[in-house]
Design a protein around this nucleic acid. Structure first.
Lengths: 135, 135
DNA sequence: CATAAATAGGACTATATTAATCCGATTTAC
DNA sequence: GTAAATCGGATTAATATAGTCCTATTTATG
């Protein structure tokens, strides 16, 4: 279980965007954060599709946060970029995807892990990170 | 970030072993937990190599825990089977593997996540799970 | 109006990991 | 001697990651 560079790059780029507080092209962020331009573009597209950022096309265009940084949590970013959270195979999309589910202590463990991660990341905002607040 | 079936199967098998409280062959556990025999064998070999279980060859052989279930944490199992924990690319093996590390708020977040997961899983023992204790 | 800077999105590739399966060797209780 | 087990190496298929590349579209500015 590792964090992908997608989340890793994406978070850094968003913290950068939050600090800028204005429209900013991919090229600038890629350069200043030393990230691969094309890949970062894909990451921004995904974040845009999820509604976290807005885009402006053309010269002087770029991306900007679609809402205040303090209303964006690390958990939301992580969920968009990482896709599946810590989900175990038996934690399906809402339903009981495993027939052994009821009273399964293993399942309880995975559930607890997922909840723990969600709580930890849900309580930290992009504003906190941009302000370099100790998390 | 998802949990592999390796951890998922492995945990279930170990809970089973903890409940049995005696030597138990792979075939029995695979059958009763409905897990693929060959793959479970590999998982047990890995757990053995890590010192979590002991093996006895030959007829009437099998595996058993190498120490009491209450001295085995979910975190230890997870670390062996999942390999890398929640590590971000910038969290190398101890050293500062990223030049931006100092004062990087993103890194602090990944570090916090890793710590949170370790605490959550480190506090639950195999004995808890075998006893179906609410986690 | 031409150009350059930007997003949009589809196609492609390389690498690694996962999740197995299969085979042959060895050990050991009976 | 046989059957039941572990041990370990080889192989395989599917999937995800981490990109790269190309073309199209949009738009501010000279």
């Amino acid at each position: 279980m590792r964090i992908s560079t997608r989340s890793y790059y994406g978070l850094r780029a968003l913290v950068h965007l939050a600090k800028e507080r204005r429209i900013c092209p991919t090229s600038k962020i890629a350069k200043e954060e030393n990230l691969p331009y094309d890949y970062l573009q894909k990451i921004f597209q995904r974040l845009k599709k999820a509604g976290l950022i807005k885009s402006v096309k053309g010269v002087e265009g770029g991306y900007l946060l679609s809402r205040p940084a303090k209303r964006i949590s690390a958990g939301q970013i992580f969920e968009i970029l990482e896709g599946r959270m810590a989900s175990a195979p038996c934690l399906g999309f809402g339903q009981l995807s495993c027939s052994r589910a009821r009273g399964c202590s293993s399942r309880d463990l995975w559930q607890k892990l997922e909840t723990t991660i969600n709580q930890a990341l849900g309580s930290i905002t992009l504003a906190d990170l941009a302000a370099n607040k100790k998390v």
